[in-house]
Design a protein around this nucleic acid. Structure first.
Lengths: 119, 119
DNA sequence: TGGTTAAACAACCAAATGGTTGATCAATGA
DNA sequence: TCATTGATCAACCATTTGGTTGTTTAACCA
């Protein structure tokens, strides 16, 4: 369930940057080179190259070799690991909210007081 | 679909920190105070308080008032927004991989091409 | 009223991050 | 062999971030 926390660390860290998320969005439409990826942004190619390094170390993208170009492409498996992590907690809480809803409903009839949940 | 990019910005940024992700994990089992949240960590309560501020500004948690305590609790809706963003691209790419798979299959007959994916 | 507890505020510091410019490496093609 | 193109490497700078200690606010309790 929680095989490698460092993996999640780097992956979330990588997605924390809006430029890198845009790169991910771009790559979802197919692989692209550093120059192509840098084009929509007002930053240098070197900066984009750094971003791609971050994404690569996070396992979110991979780079292949194709003549002088090094096309970058997405790694959906790692994205899947992220959703798995998030859903792990999201679903738990949503279920608790459903239970809470039921409690509040029955509580309202008897004159409810606020809940205290000290663990 | 993409209502507020700044929202995603702050949410991913908030989850980029391992301490904050642990706080999320803890809150998935019920609300907790700053002191309770700080306990498992080797950092001061002030530092945890700062982390909670970040999570709160990202909309991932909310703070209520209960006597002197300010219990923190999770906001699953925002987590859901994150999975929605990720899945948006994850699914696209996986579909492309399925197509690619078909291409490679037919390609193998005519003399395969390289597709090296080093981990 | 004074004491205690929970938490935030404020100022500060070290380390990391995102960006730049300039130089270098690798592959292609004349 | 040499010039070109794509991309990385290296050094550097400004800002942000995570952390600290110390001080204040807010609510309860006696």
């Amino acid at each position: 369930m929680n095989p490698d926390d460092g993996t999640l660390d780097s992956a979330f860290m990588a997605l924390a940057d809006p430029v890198r998320r845009r790169i991910i969005a771009r790559l979802s439409r197919g692989q692209a080179t550093v120059n192509e990826l840098a084009e929509p942004f007002a930053i240098t190619k070197q900066a984009v190259s750094k971003h791609i390094q971050v994404l690569e170390q996070a396992g979110l993208v991979t780079r292949s070799r194709e003549a002088q170009r090094r096309p970058v492409h997405l790694n959906p498996a790692r994205l899947e690991a992220l959703t798995a992590w998030i859903d792990q907690y999201r679903l738990v809480r949503e279920e608790q909210f459903r239970s809470l809803d039921a409690v509040l409903r029955s509580n309202a009839a008897t004159g409810g007081n606020h809940l205290k949940e000290s663990s």
